[in-house]
Amino acid sequence: MMKKQNLISLYKKLILIRLTEEAIALKYQEREIRCPVHLSIGQEAIAVGVCENLKKDDIVYSTHRCHAHYIAKGGDLNRMMAEIYGKVTGCAKGRGGSMHLVDLEAGFWGATPIVGNSLPVALGVAFANKLKGNKKAVAVFIGDGTAEEGVFHECLNFAVLHKLPILFVCENNLFSVYTHLKERQHTRPIYKIAEAHGMEAYQKDGNDILEVYKISSSIIDHIRKGQGPAFLEFMTYRHREHCGPFYDDQLGYRDQKEVKYWLKKDPVTNFKKYLLDHKVILETEMEKIKKEAMGKITRALDFAKKSKFPKQEKDFRKLIYAK
């Protein structure tokens, strides 16, 4: 079994992400958050299990569903919330919104909301790391839909060709908006594509945080040793709608049996149970952790709401061109 300290660290991040997302879902309905939000509720274990194995100066890239990755990598919560609220104190000064989170200091170098779009950029960062000869690892989060993009195949080829220090993390939540994977891809598993390109690739249960942590730990070690790129496909499920704060199963696009199956596999509930069953932590300690997280979230919301909106600059040229 992992050390108590490590298990608690995983739990703290997991619960912080879950509670942050739930708070955003609630606040969204006040109509002060005026940008699309893609909540990661149900998928948090992957972000935490992977990022817990990364160092501060390792680099992460993400997608439209980026809140969990940002928080798991240690991104500043106040600036994230301010960004979602469109404030000048936001991590992208209010220009990017929820889908363009960034925190350079934390090694979260950016998220972009076009399928497969941040993937080659992450690869280029890994390429430069290799050219410069440093030991930093890069992890890039993608979804199952990315495997349908041409750029995905181009990137896997290039990563192997140059033996780049990058981890591809595919969160397979079975859906691209409302369209099931089986309507978009042949039945072969996604990780097999990466394997065929010649890299280490595995498929694991993305809702089991310990399994995510364990495989990530060994595979990131492999990357750090200069043994080339690796690919992890994690099976998971989003609880709520593709974009927005609500549940949308009244639309009937998901099989109710499937929904029930995955809700039972909720990563937060199950990890809580694991920690209590194995007496890693007492219920009272758990409550304390939750309270601390709620405190952080309340402060972040307060920071976001009290922050000023950005002003429209007259000379827009200096905003789009670097000196």
Binding site: W109, N117, V121, F127, F158
Partner: peptide, 21 residues
């Protein structure tokens, strides 16, 4: 030289540029 992957390699160059090249 590079693979015949114009889109990925453009992204790779962007990433490399962001990272100091």
């Amino acid at each position: 030289d590079m693979p015949v992957s114009e889109n990925a390699l453009t992204g790779v160059c962007i990433g490399a540029a962001i990272n100091g090249m």
